[in-house]
Amino acid sequence: MLPPTTTPPFTFQEGCLLLVDKPKGWTSFDVVNKVRWAIRKHLGIKKIKVGHAGTLDPMATGMLNICTGKWTKRLAELQGMDKTYTGTITLGATTASYDAEEPINATFPTDHITDEMIRQAALGLTGDLEQLPPIFSAIKVDGQPLYKKARKGVQVEVKPRPVTVHEFKITRIEMPEVDFEITCSKGTYIRSLAYDLGKNLDSGGYLTALRRSSVGPFAEASMWDLEDLLGQIPPMDAGE
């Protein structure tokens, strides 16, 4: 049985599941550190276990599942759940990171692309896939994340990984932008789907916006705004 989402009063040491809406520009590690620091000051303790179930890239927003205390043992279970994302792919260009974090490195024609071609290409990227992760990713090779090797210009062979895309729905087409909603298994890189969509259209594609709207049964309406959550965890000397 899954732990329920947690609302005040919090029992951080016994265990809490906090669904946080990660702000754009923050790393998942930044958010966990901020929450951990607030809990330590709130309880007046030096250490407490706090972790997250599934990294979001800095440019992404949306659901970050954070567990505290004894519930950190459930992180792997939470990480294994299907996830839903919404966002925007820009066609006609590529970047080394497959998203807007890196500059455009190539441009391609888009005049031949029709709305029906885009929908069919998205449909072709559903089901069980062997997906090639981006070189700018947190996957570790020889103990070091790929993105660190990529930034140093080190050439690394990246092997395809099995993932499942349950649905790849196109929700808006206004060339060169394409909005989507994707439900997929753990380990799926939406950036790679953006790149592959462009490639399958004989063009290019890269991710320009991304939001994780749900994880398993946990819906967007259950998320905490980060500042609102921190406001519920005042330092001990602030009084309660």
Results as ranks from 00 to 15, higher is better:
71 W>Q: 11
106 A>S: 14
87 G>K: 08
9 P>I: 11
43 L>C: 11
138 A>M: 08
156 V>A: 06
234 P>H: 09
39 I>M: 02
49 K>M: 04
76 A>C: 00
231 G>W: 11
171 T>W: 07
137 S>I: 12
236 M>E: 15
162 P>V: 10
199 K>V: 09
2 L>E: 11
82 D>P: 13
214 S>C: 05
202 D>K: 11
195 Y>Q: 04
152 K>T: 01
23 P>K: 07
154 V>T: 12
203 S>N: 11
172 R>K: 15
210 L>H: 11
183 T>M: 08
205 G>M: 05
78 L>P: 06
216 G>S: 02
90 T>D: 04
55 T>K: 02
146 L>T: 05
59 M>N: 02
167 E>W: 07
84 T>Q: 09
214 S>Y: 00
48 I>N: 08
225 D>T: 05
59 M>R: 04
113 I>H: 06
171 T>D: 07
36 R>V: 13
97 S>C: 11
155 Q>F: 11
124 G>D: 04
168 F>R: 12
226 L>M: 08
76 A>D: 14
146 L>R: 09
24 K>A: 02
15 G>S: 05
83 K>R: 14
88 T>I: 12
83 K>A: 08
106 A>M: 04
151 R>V: 11
46 K>W: 07
81 M>Y: 02
82 D>I: 15
170 I>R: 05
162 P>L: 10
